[in-house]
Design a binder for these strands. Sequence first.
DNA 1: GTGAAAGCGCTAACAT
DNA 2: ATGTTAGCGCTTTCAC
Lengths: 315, 315
Amino acid sequence: VSRPTILDVAERSGVSKSTVSNVIRGGPHVSPEVQRRVLDAVRELGYRPNGLARQLVLRRTSTIGVVVGDLANPFYGELVKLLERRANDVGYTTIASNTDGRPEREAARIEALLEQRVAGIVMLQFSGSGALLDELLADGVPLALVGSTDERVDCAGVDETRGLALAVRHLASLGHRRIAYATSPLVDARTDAARHESFVRACAEERCAEAPLAAATAVAAANDIVAIEQIERLEREGRRVPDDVSVVGFDGIDAAGLARIGLTTVAQPREQLAAAGIRLLLERIEAGPAAPARLVLLDPELVVRSSTRKERTWQ
Amino acid sequence: VSRPTILDVAERSGVSKSTVSNVIRGGPHVSPEVQRRVLDAVRELGYRPNGLARQLVLRRTSTIGVVVGDLANPFYGELVKLLERRANDVGYTTIASNTDGRPEREAARIEALLEQRVAGIVMLQFSGSGALLDELLADGVPLALVGSTDERVDCAGVDETRGLALAVRHLASLGHRRIAYATSPLVDARTDAARHESFVRACAEERCAEAPLAAATAVAAANDIVAIEQIERLEREGRRVPDDVSVVGFDGIDAAGLARIGLTTVAQPREQLAAAGIRLLLERIEAGPAAPARLVLLDPELVVRSSTRKERTWQ
DNA sequence: GTGAAAGCGCTAACAT
DNA sequence: ATGTTAGCGCTTTCAC
């Protein structure tokens, strides 16, 4: 039941396999007559070119690896989907690898991608192990970070400083002075670090203080999932959102926009992130490892909904 | 900058490439001394086996294709994630392909998977084009459907009849007699058809009637996303859920469990679905195309929350 | 315009 | 225990 090969097609159409190869790849110098015969044979035999063999001989693949922390988070699900669409448009396929945020899984999945000789890797998640990054860079693996940033690699991300500044400024303008930062283990460590850092800075600028969750009148979450979890937790504990405490998220997932949730959030431009990520990666593949790292910084946008309101004492 | 090959390793460690191959694959008959030398060479050279070449010569891959309709739907995102984990556990990798529910994209993505010579395909989405299925079957492609069913292929799914019966019976017991069925284009056509059919049957059994959305006191949705959209729509139109109309979903996504949403839903056992899907596929790969198609029917579970209540006139 | 031949990097008999 | 050899299915010079 072995699949037919290019040789079978050659035999059946009475030409050599090079000629078959030429017509299949739309190569040059093929007489219409021969072309027809070959195409007929292809159809009759149900021939399907072996991509593995082709990639082996070409010594390059048109596959892009996508490393993601949590596919069950719709923000990443959608990003993966957009990346795939984008990649398809330019003739690439993608392989998505879920890491559950575990560094050892991340390393293993990347290793597997490299053994498959992917043309490059887009990382939506990056455990932050600098060693891994250095190794990849040293290996000359084309890399692009989407949604987080690192000086050493090409990145497409949102301006994290502005992002959390937007959130904190919004809360401050509503009179909040004691703001908590909420996160979870599923948040990519680097992203988390960046967001927390800028949260702290923005607090300083706006003269608010970082407070523990129990003592805060508002919470800024590392992402929308965390924000929604916080709303759940708060209301379970009898504190109303936004009446008792305001909550703002980050990402702009669809669920945040539901009337029942109404999460004020800092939305990321997902389409643009995906587009920039693929573009950066392809250009990196083109340019080689020596070219300087580039950074595409997109603007996040504050979407105000009903999870934030004036601090109580101000009413 | 070409990567080192097995030959480079052989040369550096002063053995033949078969010996290198043996130690790398943990093959037999390798003296500890030679083993050490080879491993050293591997490390020094930064050698990484070429999976493409290996798969080509083995004439089989350990890659499973996963075809999914909408990765941005967290139910599918999670399913893909679980499938990947499961597959990894048994030595396989997965490559997920998003189709956006479009049959032509579905066909194209499957074609690409086959050219990559995937060992088999798990379909979470199936456009329902019988022709495509027949073709795959005729080609002897190992196939497993997860979440939908077809007599011709191995399937792991929830008992759709029971699933919607659960929903309708629940609504009927609350006094609802005019129930609408809600769906959307993103719902896999076959799944949609199956659910609607059993909805109709359950209505007959419970003596309810299928009603248009505007005239219904309750709505059964094809999945949780649709259900949540319906809640949005209804409340935007000024009809409260569950006070004016009850809504029940299907799938059991995390968001349904949020207190703010509180969606009564028919939950699918996602872990078990993923596990069964992978198991069926592997057994199919093992058994060959001739073996009879198998069906794993799992029990859905009604999770009652706050989106359903007694029909008003009954109070 | 078409074919013959030389690999791509690897595994698996079969020798030794 | 290790080496030799013959491919896996394809692309690509280079002849004809």
